[in-house]
Design a protein around this nucleic acid. Sequence first.
DNA 1: ACGCACTCCGTAAACGTTTACGACTGTAGG
DNA 2: CCTACAGTCGTAAACGTTTACGGAGTGCGT
Lengths: 347, 347
Amino acid sequence: MKGIRQLAEHLNISIGTVSRALNGKPDVNQETRRRVLAAAEELGYVANQSGRSLRQGETKVIGLMIESSKETVENADNFFLGVTSGLQSVFSRHQLDLLMLPCPSDEDPHEYLKRMVARRIVDAMIISDTQRVDRRIDFLSRAKIPFVALGRSLSASNFPWIDLDFEGVADHAVERLIALGHRRIAITAPSSEANLGYLFIESYRRALERHDIAFDPSLVIRVRSSEQGGYQAAHELLLLEERPTAVILIYELMAIGLYRRLMESGVMPGRDLAVIGFRDAPRARFLQPSLSCFRMSLYDLGVALGRMLLANMPAYRDFYPGGERNIIWPLELMPGESDAFDVGAMV
Amino acid sequence: MKGIRQLAEHLNISIGTVSRALNGKPDVNQETRRRVLAAAEELGYVANQSGRSLRQGETKVIGLMIESSKETVENADNFFLGVTSGLQSVFSRHQLDLLMLPCPSDEDPHEYLKRMVARRIVDAMIISDTQRVDRRIDFLSRAKIPFVALGRSLSASNFPWIDLDFEGVADHAVERLIALGHRRIAITAPSSEANLGYLFIESYRRALERHDIAFDPSLVIRVRSSEQGGYQAAHELLLLEERPTAVILIYELMAIGLYRRLMESGVMPGRDLAVIGFRDAPRARFLQPSLSCFRMSLYDLGVALGRMLLANMPAYRDFYPGGERNIIWPLELMPGESDAFDVGAMV
DNA sequence: ACGCACTCCGTAAACGTTTACGACTGTAGG
DNA sequence: CCTACAGTCGTAAACGTTTACGGAGTGCGT
C-alpha cells in the first residue's frame, strides 16, 4: 500500500473523500465511510506522517530535551526513565510520540534548541535542568512554542513549570537535624548555574537562621552530584578543622561515595555523622546503614508534566482543564538509620 | 524566517540554488554558497523536516520500541536509559534523532509496529524484548526496514541482533557453584515467551548434566523478574522439601525481595543460601551481604547496537564497515559475599 | 566561426496529505 | 415551478523541500 491515492483508486472514490472519511469529518456518507475504513484496514493503509505534518503544520511529536554527556546519563540513574514513562502514559492517549533530543555537551543548549524548533520536528517541548537565567525559556515563550520546564528559572515571568520542593526538603532536613541536637550541619550543592542548587542552599540558610545558627559558607560543599562527588564531599568534610555532625546531600547517589570515604577514615555514618539524602532513592534502602531520604514518584511527576504541557496546547487544552501553571513537587521523608542517633551522646 | 523561499528572495537567488548550496551539492559557485550559508545563519533558517522528509522519503529518525507498562518501566531500572545513552552517542554524530515508541501493554506489539512503520515516521527500528517467535522480525525483514534487535529469536534466519550471553552466565554460575560444593542449585526464569528465559534455563540444564546432576524441574522457579518476584521466589524456595543450597537469579533486582523473604525466615543469604545475580547491577554492591553478580556496560551495549544498525543502513554503511551481524554480549563476574562460602561446611 | 566541455543557475515537477470551494443531487417549502 | 438547503462528493491548491533537466554563459581547441 503506497498512499491515499492508491486507496482511493481501489475504491473508485476521490482522494478527498477518502481523507475526510478517515479523519472523521462530518460530510461523508455513513456507508462510504464504512467502506473506506474497511479497505484501509484490509490494505493496511496508514497516513504518511510527513505529508500530513507538512500540510497541517504539526507533527504530533513532543520533544524532550536532555543533556547527554556520558557522565550525566550514568549518574542520572533512572530519573529520566521514570519521568519519561509517566510522560508517555499521558501522551499515548493522544497518539503523541516522544522524541528524545539529547543536546551534545559541547553545544550551547539554547542554540541546539533553536535548531530543533526551526526544523519543525516537534509541536511542543519539555526542557529540564533549567539554569538560573535560561535563554531557552525566553526563546520558547517568544516563539509561542508550547513547553513546560522541569525546574524553575528567573527567566521570563510566567511560564509553566514543575520543580522539586528543594526548599521544603532543605527546611525539613535542617529542622529534623536540629531537633536531634545538631548545630553544625553541612550541605552539598552543585557548582553550576543550575537554579536547583541555589534554591536548595537558600532554604538551608534560612532554616538555620531561624534557629539562630550562623550560616557558615565553609559548610557548603561544592561538588558534582555523583557518586564520585559524594566521595569528594566526604573528603572535604574530613578536612574541616571543626567537623560538622551532619550533612545533607542534594542527591542520594552521592551517599555511596560518601559512605566509602567516611569508612576509609573510620568515620561511621549514622553514628559519627548524620546523613540525609534527597530525591528518588531506591538505592538508599540498601546502604548500610540505610539512608534517611526524601523520595517521590518519578512516574507521577512525569504524568503531571505531561498534563501540564497538554493543558498549554490549544488542541488538547480541553482535556485538561483548570490545572495549575506551576507546581512545587512534594517529597516524602523515608526515615532510615543514617541520622537516627542523638548528637548529644557524641563527644 | 519562514522557508527556503523567503531566504531565496532575500538573496535574489533561485530557490533551487539555495537548496543546493545548503546541502553541499557540487554545482554551485563558491561565492554564492558562502552568501547563502551566511544568510541562513543570520536569519536562523533551518530546513523544515516535514518537507524534506516528504520529498526524500526519509525522516532521519530512528525508532526505539519498548513495552511500556508502568510495572515494566519501574522494574527496568536504568537498563533502557543506559542503552539509550549509548545509542544517542552514535546517532547524534549523524544528525539522527531517537524516537521512543512505547507499545501500550494492551496492544499487540506486532500491530503497533506495523502502524508506526506505515506512518513512515522512522527510517529504522530497534526492537527489544524479542519473543521466541517474533512476528515483528519477519515483518521488518520482509518490509526491508533496517532494524536491529536486542535479543535473539527463532524467527527469520539471519537478522542483526545483539543478545546478552545468557548461556555463558548460566554456565559460569553453575560451574562456580558446583566448584564450591553445591549440588542442588535453583534458578529463576520468567514465565513469558521471551526467548531469554528459555536460553537461560537450557544452558543451566546442560551445565548441570555435564556434572552428572539430574535436572530437577521443581528447581526452576517461574516468577516475574522484579523485586516482588524475588520475594516470591524465596517463598517458593523455602517451601521445597529438599531445600537447594544455591540460587541463580535472572535479574539482580530480584535479590532485594529475595533477601528480605529469606531474612524473615531466618535464612541468611551468603551463609545458608548462595545467591548469584545477573545483568547490570549497580545496586548489587549495596546489598548486605554484597551480591555476586554478572555485569556489563549498558552504554557500550547501546553503542554497539547503534553501530550495528547503521551498518545495515545503506546511507551510513560506509562509516561502519565490516561489523559482525550478530553479537553475544559478554558479562563479567563481580564476585561478592553472597556466594562466598563453602557448602561443605553446611549441615 | 564553430563545436564542445564545463560551470553555474533557474524552472518545474514531485513527494502525500488536508481542506476550501464549488458542484451535484434530492427534498421540502413556498 | 422556483428557491433554499442539507447531504455528499470531486477538484485543485497548498504545505516546504529536493532534484532532474535544460539553458545561459564562458573558455578553449579546431
